[in-house]
Simulated assay, not measured.
Amino acid sequence: MSLKTQYENLGDLVINAVLAAELNRRGRFLGISNGAPADYVDDFQALAEQLSGAPITCGELRQMAPRILQAAAGSGMTLVLSPGHNTLDQPTRTRQILSTATHYGLGRLRILQVGASFEGAFPETTRLYSQLRKAGHPLSVRDIISRNGFAERGINLPIVPDLAFGLQCSTHNEGDIGLIAVREHKSQPYEQLRKTVAAIAVAMHAVQLEPVMFFQVSLDAPLHARLAYDLGIRELNTGNHRPSFDEAMQVYARAGAIVSNRLHGLLVAAAAGALPLPLLHPEERKIRGALAEGELSGLIIEAEPECRKRTGELLARRSELHNRIVVPAFARCKQQLEDFFDGATG
């Protein structure tokens, strides 16, 4: 598996590490680190080993070449497409290589895709997926939006829950802080977002949770700083670097709830015990689809300044909702992931 991804996005680190851990428990995993920063490779390797309970092998392609050639000539190998880096649309060369390799059946090569989400697929991607599916390669998508998009093109793919559901979900929900983690959305001007976040902060105060800003994607840092300053809300992390997995989990374990429009922020925090409350606009269909697979749609808050009442109602029941809805959702989705990997790896 290539380790190319959004390096400053903790969510991408987590889902790639979950993917690697699942595969590492079932076979010999090789992570190709070409182009990945050394600190990211270290974080990825440490987390994947923590999750799988076994060593993970990562290195440059030239280091891995003998092992790859040995596998290709022997029992065969699987090329894993990282969900954090859509290799099927850029660069074109990747599509050409995959298409040629699968067409000629080189070295019993299999292509595995899990965790992918597509609002709309490029024609080149559609052609390649059609070819791979007909050849029996283990492909999947994470939500009904993606599945329906491919189905319209005559490609039937199964839905497998988001990889973040592969984390073990804590039943602890006794935190005294309420996390706010938002990204900018094109349909919501800053002033409207400010009013929405202000309403959420009031709702958190009303149930004895201190509202605080916390990002796990460095791109969100400037927006968080601005909101914190304008609303007088404390920031738990500053600067422009994402937290490590352990740092984030320590913060999430202190939270009674997290309100966010970042899917993996919600799910990683939920695994640590925070009630995940998705703050979404109507057009955020992919996130809604991923949440629906986990049967978490009932926790969605519509992103509008008048959301205080609903936010307060959900926050007041945070421990009950977390243990009645979220913990079983993780257990159910984790089993679906296990079943998919068992079938995909034989």
Rank of each mutant, 00 (worst) to 15 (best):
Q192P: 03
I56M: 13
G312P: 11
E247M: 07
S140A: 15
A225N: 02
F340T: 10
S218P: 05
F341M: 06
G289S: 12
A21W: 03
V80A: 11
D143Y: 13
S52G: 01
P66I: 01
L139F: 14
R288K: 13
D39G: 09
Q336G: 00
S244L: 15
L193E: 06
G11A: 08
Q113L: 15
L69Q: 15
I111C: 07
G298K: 01
E284K: 09
G346P: 05
S2Y: 00
A344D: 05
K4A: 13
L112W: 03
L13S: 06
T100N: 12
Q63P: 02
R28I: 13
A221M: 06
G178T: 10
G74L: 09
I159Y: 02
R93S: 11
M249F: 05
A329M: 03
A274F: 02
E60Y: 14
A272P: 00
G136D: 03
F214E: 00
R234H: 12
A72Y: 01
V41M: 10
L10G: 04
H241V: 14
L88Y: 03
G239N: 11
Y129D: 07
D246G: 07
S319Q: 11
K134P: 07
G105D: 13
L112V: 05
V259R: 04
T171R: 13
E8T: 12
Q250E: 15
F165Y: 15
G31P: 03
D89N: 15
Q63H: 10
R310G: 02
R234E: 14
I180Y: 11
G115M: 10
A270R: 00
R133P: 09
K4I: 14
A257K: 01
I301F: 12
C307E: 03
R95K: 08
A71H: 01
P138C: 14
